[in-house]
Design a protein around this nucleic acid. Structure first.
Lengths: 214, 214
DNA sequence: TAAATAGTGTCTCTGAGACACTATACA
DNA sequence: TGTATAGTGTCTCAGAGACACTATTTA
């Protein structure tokens, strides 16, 4: 019988912060060696028979201190198999994404996706390699998009999220046409509450019931 | 210490057969229980510290009986985590692709990608879920494309491969423009040898040295 | 010359990008 | 009325798709 590899699950936890007008990544200070005290992506060892989705939730709740209900969507990215990535020995790392709602009283350090600090293990590489994959999901992967933006949002917020993920801010008219083609997303005629600094109140976009997160 | 999950690697082995004018998948009859005698994708358990690339080669050589040199390119697809997928107990399955050259004296059963027979485990599902991912790689993932078609090929062969993977046969002129934009692929002015049934001899496309498989 | 195959020129349609212009709020 | 924000109409350009037409071989 072959001795099997350990499998860890490392999660890129994303959240849109309307005040910061940016997508944030949740990382946490490591409690134990190796890399104690350094920032790292939340990760756990996959238990025998455990689903990836469950391990993702376990990492987000256990390492970032978020409530289970705040996880709005999850999914796979890629697998990293460099044997020396963990000094304790060879482990496979399955990279996953999770979108979460604004947390209350969590342990996480939230940093802008375009300004992620140095992380432990090979987590810098995981973030770098997975960023294009995440950017590609926006407006194409409906659960990802709905999980990130929530059931209702304005065009300006959609612009902010797009800029955070792709690095480029599209023209509003063009983004509007992109959104018109997203299944389950509809342009409402409802106006959002007025802005603090004046200006025309924005219209609201809404994901229909089957698609929107709880 | 958490008891860790077993990780298996299941490979979708692809090869272009110019005579059949189609992309073929290599499967093999299982030698042992469970599912002894049934066809299955070549797969192995990932050893501790083993790279995915090495496990892929091991599966292709061990289960299909191909030479190591016939593997021209490999890559990741997705991970399947359904706990009941293997009756022996919960295992994670990492699906990978490999492209190979025409084998000599192998154990494999080669079937057209559009006519894959019923397979053991959840391999039907793996093939079904991964087909769109494979189709998406053609002309976009250069190692995949070069591995499948080899260093030199004709437009007609490119049409056959495209039809096998996507289900639709493009117009030659349009496919030519797609290929013009593939980095490392060049349209030569060299004619292939004349055809058995008459007709204009086709031009040859060539992958440049750094890109083409050995 | 007919049949079979290969290759090209070009029209159309769609979607991304760019930008000027219009609309609606607060001070 | 000025400033700040939001939203729209439309031009342009690139790429996908479609197709008619031309080219080169064998029988």
């Amino acid at each position: 019988m072959i001795e099997s590899t350990l499998v860890s699950v490392d999660v890129i936890v994303l959240r849109f912060d309307p005040d910061a007008r940016a997508v944030l990544v949740g990382v946490a200070s490591r409690a134990q060696e190796p890399f104690a005290g350094e920032l790292a992506l939340p990760g756990v060892l996959l238990a025998r028979g455990e689903r990836l989705r469950d391990a993702t939730t376990r990492a987000v709740t256990g390492k970032l201190g978020l409530a289970e209900e705040s996880v709005t969507a999850t999914g796979q990215l890629t697998t990293f198999d460099e044997p020396s990535r963990d000094p304790r020995g060879p482990t496979l790392s399955i990279a996953l994404w999770a979108t979460v709602t604004r947390p209350t009283g969590d342990l996480a350090v939230w940093r802008r996706l375009d300004d992620v600090p140095a992380l432990a293990f090979d987590h810098d590489r995981i973030v770098a390699d997975c960023r294009p994959l995440l950017a590609d999901k926006l407006w194409r992967d409906v659960p990802f998009t709905a999980g990130l933006l929530g059931p209702e949002f304005t065009t300006a917020q959609a612009l902010d999220v797009t800029e955070s993920l792709t690095g480029e801010r599209p023209y509003p008219a063009n983004l509007g046409r992109t959104m018109d083609r997203v299944p389950g997303l509809e342009r409402t005629s409802q106006h959002a509450s007025a802005l603090p600094k004046g200006g025309r109140p924005p219209l609201v976009w809404r994901f229909s019931a089957g698609v929107a997160p709880a």
